[in-house]
Amino acid sequence: MASTKRRWRPKLSEKFIEVRNLDFCRGSRHIFKNLNLTIARGKITAIMGTSGTGKTTLLQLITRQLVPDRGQVFIDGVDIGKLNLRELYKLRRRFGVLFQNGALLTDMSVFENVAFPLREHTRLTNRLIRHVVLTKLHAVGLRGAADMMPGQLSGGMERRVALARAMVMDPDILIYDEPFVGLDPISMGVIVRLVKRMNKALGITSILVSHDVKEIMEVADCSYLISNGKVAASGSPEDMRQQLSETVRQFMHGMADGPVPFHFDAPDYEEQLLGRDEK
């Protein structure tokens, strides 16, 4: 629709994105230590991990909003650390990103938000833009909200509009940062099916960050569990469920105690409550 170029027909399990020996620190916190993972072309890859392990950070590194301290990210065999700004922007046109908080442009209506990439990058006529935008809005069930402003939407609606915007350029790679948070069961079902359809019908490679083990089981072809800056486990969701490793079992079954710390790094609880850590 939006782009007329022919889409690459995926060969099975070909590497599309490869993260190699990645190190990244935020302040004094070492977020990734020698992280390696690959994302297969034309598949849905899920990235799981407890809150604060750096899933959003990983997406930012993959899209080069952040630059790693060490290591490389390859997209289609190209080291994105070596691209200049123009090439980077060209690459980014192939991305559709759903931000964790939607990130709609607050000074435009819902319609204009979804139309924004089209208006910036294509010379489509207004009629065609209208057609494409309404189709995408319809797909997320918000065609009726086209004239509303982002401030008037609920969190879940905002995220669905952002999803429509991420899809509007028919990207090669769709990146979803927590697409299922704050959705009611009906919308959730619709969005899950939409994610699946984008992938199956159009062959779009998808990266899905989520905590929702159940939804991931349903859609993902492959998944990674990140813990302590490393890949703790990987494989198809079925494999993951079968895995006996403590870490995986804890995450998949939602247990508080186990090798994955539920608590953010902190001084000893008892010591702190008793005030002994104060000098």
Binding site: K90, V97, F99, T106, P117
Partner: peptide, 12 residues
């Protein structure tokens, strides 16, 4: 609110 990052990600 990440709007500027979102634009950058849309190659704008």
């Amino acid at each position: 609110t990440d709007q500027l990052s979102a634009m950058e990600m849309m190659a704008v």
